[in-house]
Every structure is written in structure tokens, then in C-alpha cells.
């Protein structure tokens, strides 16, 4: 299931941080941190979600927009951690 990480992250973000938003508005490339959808506490909750869901560990410096600013980047990070 190549897209399962993407869809799970999307569902999590919509439910937690964008209640009521049209799911079509949130694309793989929507800027999450630089677009102010995720503030620092929301980013922390996302990191906990990723760690618990996929059994991975993120270092503090990895919790940055370089790795987490879009769903596509997040999925890439999770894939690389699982590899």
C-alpha cells in the first residue's frame, strides 16, 4: 500500500488541526508549518503520532520544515526511517 502513510497523515491532520476543512483542499504539497497549519505544539503532536503509528524515532533537528512541511515530505521521512 504505497499511499497508506500519506492518507493516514492526511486524515490525522484534517481531524486534529483542520476540523471542518474540505479534504480536497489539503494536498500532498500544502505547506503545513510554513503555512501555519502546524504551530510548534501541533508539530510536536504530529511527531508523537508518527513515532507511535510507525514505531520510529525522530531526532529534534528532524522536526523541522525541511522534513515535515508537506505530507509528501512527511511520508518520505517515515519511509526512510522504516528502511
Amino acid at each position: 500500500m504505497p499511499d497508506s502513510i500519506e492518507s493516514a497523515v492526511k486524515t490525522f491532520i484534517l481531524n486534529e488541526f483542520l476540523p471542518g476543512e474540505d479534504p480536497a483542499e489539503l494536498t500532498m504539497q500544502t505547506p503545513l508549518i510554513t503555512g501555519a497549519i502546524l504551530d510548534s505544539i501541533a508539530t510536536m503532536k504530529l511527531v508523537l503520532f508518527l513515532e507511535e503509528t510507525w514505531g520510529i524515532r525522530l531526532e529534534a533537528h528532524e522536526a523541522s520544515p525541511d522534513n515535515l512541511d508537506t505530507i509528501a515530505l512527511i511520508a518520505g521521512l517515515v519511509h526512510s526511517k522504516q528502511a
Binding site: L18, G20, E21, D22, E25, L26, T30, G35, A36, I37
Partner: peptide, 10 residues
């Protein structure tokens, strides 16, 4: 959209 609003705010 909410996403557009948040981006505008940022």
C-alpha cells in the same frame, strides 16, 4: 478555505 486563511496569516 481554512488552509488559505492560515497561510495568509502566516
Amino acid at each position: 478555505s481554512l488552509i488559505a486563511l492560515k497561510r495568509f496569516c502566516s
